[in-house]
Simulated scan of single mutants.
Amino acid sequence: MIVIDIGNTDIVIGIYTKHKLDKTLRFNTKSKNTIRLIKLRFTNRYIHQLKIKHKICILSSVVPEINNKIKSLFKSLKFKVLNITTNNIPFDIQFNYQPKELGSDRIANTLAAIKKYGNNCLIIDFGTATTFDVIKNNKYEGGVIAPGIDISHNALVRHASKLKKISIIRTKSLIGNNTKDSMQSGFYWGYISLINGVIDKIIKQQRFKPTIILTGGLANIFKKEISQKTEYEPNLTLNGLYLIGKIKYA
């Protein structure tokens, strides 16, 4: 089975064989060459070499303009393609959210989290946006969307002519003695404060003790400074998509 997570920054393709994630491929969503590169990779010969037993493709997309191109490509390769929504998932979960507005990646994350960790979860996804998803008593209660650290970084550099791009790292000192160190401290410790603050408010407001799950590209950088115990699941979205396909087409 092939699962595809089309995000605003990257397209991540997961290839599952024998019920395990065997390989991941990553492409730049905004590149003009992305569709061509995927076509070049996914030839009939390559698919045969992968030894995929069932030609099923489960698709999550938050980028409508590229969605149909990916669907058409895999349909031309004789895959059965399912683009997931809250209406076609094979699970009895109530979503307390506007159905047309809930990203399919967040749906996949929710299902994967419940399957592995139970009915009370708080998922933090460090992607283009930093999202917090609340699952309480097997019900998706809603979430929080904050700007992602990369787009915040890019916006600051674009609008402040003297500031240059930096790498996002944990700084030893909170107080910087030059512009680079000060920016790195501000982004790292500023986001840690945002994350811990939102976690605390969600737990207090919802009055529950969730399993806190971190996923997304930058989760690994921040996980050690989060005040609560957390679980790190870098492939949460892909695993959720696979779970949908496994049950839907079993």
Rank of each mutant, 00 (worst) to 15 (best):
I2N: 10
V3N: 10
I4H: 05
N8M: 02
I15S: 10
R26G: 09
R26W: 05
F27N: 10
S31R: 07
S31F: 01
S31V: 02
R36V: 11
K39I: 01
R41H: 08
T43C: 08
N44Q: 11
I47E: 12
H54M: 12
K55R: 15
I56E: 13
S60D: 02
S61P: 01
V63T: 05
I66K: 14
N67D: 12
N68P: 00
K71G: 03
L73G: 09
K75A: 07
K75V: 06
K78L: 05
K80C: 07
K80T: 12
N83R: 15
N83D: 15
I84T: 04
D92S: 15
Y97A: 06
Q98W: 05
P99R: 11
K100Y: 11
G103D: 08
G103T: 02
G103Q: 09
N109R: 02
A112V: 03
I114F: 09
Y117Q: 06
I124Q: 03
I124V: 06
T130D: 02
F132K: 04
D133R: 03
I151C: 07
I151K: 06
I151R: 07
I151M: 13
N154V: 02
V157W: 08
R158L: 13
L163F: 12
S167C: 03
I169H: 14
T171Q: 15
S173L: 14
N177C: 07
S182N: 11
S182R: 04
S182M: 07
Q184R: 15
D200C: 07
I202G: 04
P210C: 04
T211P: 11
I212W: 00
I213A: 05
I221Y: 01
E225F: 02
Y232Q: 06
E233G: 03
N235R: 04
G240H: 05
K248N: 09
A250E: 11
